[in-house]
């Protein structure tokens, strides 16, 4: 198993964010981590990346605890803009090449060219949307074992969403696993193999997309609305 969560609990200042969360994610799958805002999606992702620690339970990435090796194996796109404003795109490529042995600078340069982003452009002069695309390119230009994208289309207009999803699908290694956390189910339904529904820190439903559709006779989006309708 690529990712193993076992009885994971997490509290923020006494408030429960995750309660006894357990799941396993194999390799070569596209997983939709779905749930409303504040349901615990980002907490799961931060735990996978070692940005926060669980209060109880265990998290394993490829059978090992989260650490230096898992940071190399995981390509993570956070919800926020985390890049240094003073940097130029060229310097970002150099930065990622220095730290990630699986970063392909040629692919990154090609993707930036496709987007019309000059390598000498400074981040400080870019719009929020362009910065998000820059981050996406830097993440997708890595040959990682696990791609984790936290709300990659959350703040993007419908036309931009298509571009981002296409970029993700075209560039991710099919031997890898891709986790997309979002509340925009309709947009990602077609690309997901499996889904995990989470609400109030508890997993409500998980399974294969085709199986769920067959079992409920509805689209994943409709199942989502049904599962969360009382909330």
């Amino acid at each position: 198993m690529l990712v193993q969560f076992k009885d994971v609990n997490k509290k923020y200042s006494g408030k429960v964010a995750l309660h006894n969360v357990s799941f396993e994610i194999p390799t070569g799958r596209v997983i939709g981590l779905l749930g409303p805002n504040g349901s615990g999606k980002s907490t799961i992702i931060k735990l996978m990346n070692g940005l926060i620690q669980p209060n109880a339970g265990s998290i394993l990435i490829e059978g090992n605890k989260v650490g230096v090796q898992s940071h190399l194996d995981i390509a993570y796109l956070p919800e926020r803009t985390y890049l240094n404003d003073w940097m130029r795109v060229r310097q970002l490529i150099e930065f990622f090449s220095d730290f990630y042995s699986n970063f392909d600078a040629t692919i990154a340069a090609k993707l930036f060219k496709d987007l019309g982003i000059d390598l000498e452009d400074r981040l400080v002069a870019m719009s929020k949307g362009t910065k998000e695309k820059v981050q996406l390119v830097l993440v997708m230009a890595r040959k990682a074992k696990l791609y984790i994208l936290d709300e990659p289309i959350g703040g993007v207009d419908p036309a931009g969403r298509d571009y981002i999803l296409n970029t993700i699908i075209k560039n991710y290694d099919t031997d890898s696993t891709l986790i997309i956390a979002t509340h925009l189910i309709q947009e990602v339904e077609s690309i997901c193999d499996d889904v995990i529904f989470i609400h109030n820190g508890v997993i409500k439903l998980q399974g294969n997309v085709d199986d769920l559709r067959a079992e409920h006779g509805k689209s994943v989006d409709q199942i989502f609305r049904e599962v969360f309708k009382c909330y």
């Binding site: 990346n49 940071h71 985390y82 890049l83």
Partner: peptide, 13 residues
């Protein structure tokens, strides 16, 4: 700050 999302996910201790 937000740059921590990058720094703490680098393969370094």
């Amino acid at each position: 700050g937000d740059e921590g999302y990058l720094m703490f996910t680098l393969p370094v201790t």
